[in-house]
């Protein structure tokens, strides 16, 4: 078991996403502590990118705020290092491939390992292209999380069999962002994935309400929430900690 998959051992996990550097890195650190303190089991930290093609408007705007605050990959690494000893839950990075390619794969994953980032999700690196980075992530013991979508069809078997940490099940078609209703048959997709792997399955994209979270907990091993958290940070700016704590408690109840 890895530090990430351990999280799912005895409970349904709540995975919280926020954008690194939104509204600034000091606040990101404070909000990570707030989210973890209120019950988030894994924190995903967004690495800003100029052209986030898998994101809806809420996270696109967060990318721009992160750039405005001067966030860089090295800044993000510095922030996660400073969290060592302060936060017990696994930290992960989520973003796009080009800034990582540009940083250098070996250097990037080495820094992840040094700075306590135990998993990475790359939105534009599907299973078939993982060979691009796998040598380096493996070398440094960083888990590469793969995604399964409602459209994955015949690809589910291959993706699931090779999954690490957890399988990120994309709840719906389209980009990230709150949806009033998730129409995909999550239960059936989870069952399909479980035919091929024991790796836990967490569901994200569009999840924002406690009711949705409850339903997903009944069908999968974890719930991933991004845009709703990012929206709270947009609304409350530098004073979002209390609201984030309240939201996480609400989302993890019952």
């Amino acid at each position: 078991m890895s530090k990430i998959s351990d999280v799912f051992k005895n409970k349904k996990a709540f995975i919280a996403y926020l954008m690194g550097g939104d509204p600034n890195l000091a606040k990101t650190k404070e909000y990570i502590l707030a989210l973890a303190g209120a019950g988030a089991d894994i924190i995903e930290i967004g690495m800003p990118f100029s052209d986030p093609i898998a994101e809806g408007e809420v996270i696109q705007a967060a990318n721009l705020r992160a750039f405005a605050s001067g966030a860089t990959l090295d800044g993000l690494f510095g922030m996660t290092v400073s969290l060592k000893g302060e936060v017990a839950v696994p930290l992960m990075f989520m973003g796009y491939l080009n800034p990582i390619f540009n940083y250098g794969y070996d250097r990037f994953f080495a820094r992840c390992a040094e700075c306590g980032v135990c998993g990475v999700i790359i939105a534009d690196l599907p299973f078939e292209e993982q060979g691009e980075v796998l040598e380096y992530s493996d070398r440094h013991g960083v888990e590469l999380i793969t995604l399964v979508a409602p459209t994955s069809a015949e690809r589910v078997a291959r993706v699931a069999k090779n999954a690490m940490g957890f399988v990120y099940l994309v709840s719906s078609l389209g980009v990230t962002g709150a949806r009033s209703e998730i129409t995909t048959d999550i239960g059936a997709l989870v069952a399909e994935i479980r035919r091929y792997t024991d790796t836990p399955v967490a569901v994200g994209f569009g999840v924002h309400s406690p009711e949705q979270a409850r339903r997903i907990r009944g069908q999968a091993d974890g719930v991933i929430v991004g845009s709703a958290i990012v929206e709270i940070i947009r609304e409350y700016g530098e004073n979002a900690a209390g609201e984030l704590e309240r939201y996480v408690r609400e989302m993890t109840e019952g």
Binding site: A123, L125, P126, E129, T146, L147, A149, T151, S152
Partner: peptide, 14 residues
């Protein structure tokens, strides 16, 4: 070249 796209599009490309 390659296929660096979100998972949702992979089956469509195939």
């Amino acid at each position: 070249g390659g296929q660096y796209v979100p998972e949702t599009l992979m089956q469509a490309l195939s």
